Computed example of a mutant assay.
Amino acid sequence: MKVRPIPLTTWELSKAVAQLLQDQSDTRYVLTTHGMPSYTFTGFHPVPDLQIVTILDQAYVVIGHESLDLPIVLDPRDGRVLLAVGPAHSGAFTQLSLYNSSLRQYRACAEAFVARLPYYRAAQIQEDNFDAAAGQLRDDLLADIVRIDAAAQCVWSDLPWQIEMGDYPNEALNKYLIEDETLDGCGDQ
């Protein structure tokens, strides 16, 4: 089994975005050089082109959307990565939740999440030791997230709980990650 490389999305900065991020040199560098991982299966969907949006009377740069189609934005004032939330399907965002203190830390948390793949086979969810193993995986991932960016545990903490509940069996991730369709050896780590 070989794990496919995760594709990256990089952008050329428009004048408007570059001007908005003029005080965020590291953020501009990450966007244009390192890019954002296209972890579609985790709920991060990068936008094809960076967009500027106004939320609560402040301009932000939209870098992607999460699984509920909520925008993931960069705060040009301090480089934080935020999740815009509001009433379902209203398009009116009334709150911003912290993903990470910086784009670099967002990438590191996403990479910590993916580094543990593949997690388990669907059949293993029914095994007696699944709860303990999934709980340990959750605890380890949460510890890594706190180590990378202690402020980030709010939004990121949902993913380890979803893993523990059995939301990420290898079979569901196979179309994104695994080149060998047989799944031989997956989860036997």
Results as ranks from 00 to 15, higher is better:
residue 174 N to E: 14
residue 171 E to H: 15
residue 59 A to I: 01
residue 34 H to A: 13
residue 68 L to M: 12
residue 138 R to Y: 08
residue 131 D to Y: 02
residue 32 T to F: 11
residue 88 A to E: 14
residue 25 S to A: 15
residue 35 G to E: 12
residue 108 A to P: 09
residue 80 R to W: 01
residue 47 V to T: 13
residue 107 R to Q: 09
residue 42 T to W: 11
residue 27 T to M: 13
residue 40 T to H: 06
residue 13 L to T: 04
residue 43 G to A: 02
residue 185 G to P: 10
residue 12 E to Q: 04
residue 120 Y to D: 00
residue 183 L to E: 15
residue 45 H to P: 05
residue 166 G to S: 06
residue 130 F to P: 05
residue 69 D to C: 08
residue 9 T to L: 08
residue 54 T to C: 01
residue 71 P to S: 06
residue 54 T to I: 00
residue 150 A to F: 08
residue 134 A to S: 05
residue 86 G to P: 01
residue 125 I to F: 02
residue 71 P to N: 14
residue 128 D to K: 14
residue 189 Q to K: 09
residue 170 N to V: 15
residue 6 I to E: 05
residue 26 D to H: 13
residue 36 M to D: 09
residue 123 A to D: 11
residue 25 S to Q: 12
residue 162 Q to N: 09
residue 125 I to N: 02
residue 62 V to M: 04
residue 7 P to G: 12
residue 74 L to W: 08
residue 155 V to N: 02
residue 183 L to I: 05
residue 122 A to Q: 15
residue 3 V to L: 10
residue 34 H to N: 15
residue 18 A to Y: 04
residue 9 T to C: 04
residue 90 S to M: 07
residue 2 K to I: 03
residue 176 Y to C: 05
residue 26 D to Q: 09
residue 104 R to M: 08
residue 45 H to Q: 10
residue 81 V to K: 01
residue 161 W to M: 06
residue 136 Q to R: 14
residue 54 T to Y: 03
residue 173 L to R: 05
residue 52 I to D: 03
residue 130 F to Q: 10
residue 143 A to W: 01
residue 22 Q to G: 01
residue 35 G to I: 07
residue 178 I to R: 03
residue 32 T to R: 06
residue 177 L to E: 02
residue 169 P to Q: 03
residue 103 L to F: 07
residue 7 P to R: 04
residue 140 D to S: 06
residue 15 K to H: 03
residue 15 K to A: 15
residue 165 M to Y: 14
residue 112 A to T: 00
residue 124 Q to P: 01
residue 96 L to H: 04
residue 83 L to A: 02
residue 94 T to N: 15
residue 92 A to H: 09
residue 135 G to M: 07
residue 11 W to P: 13
residue 11 W to M: 08
residue 1 M to T: 12
residue 146 V to C: 03
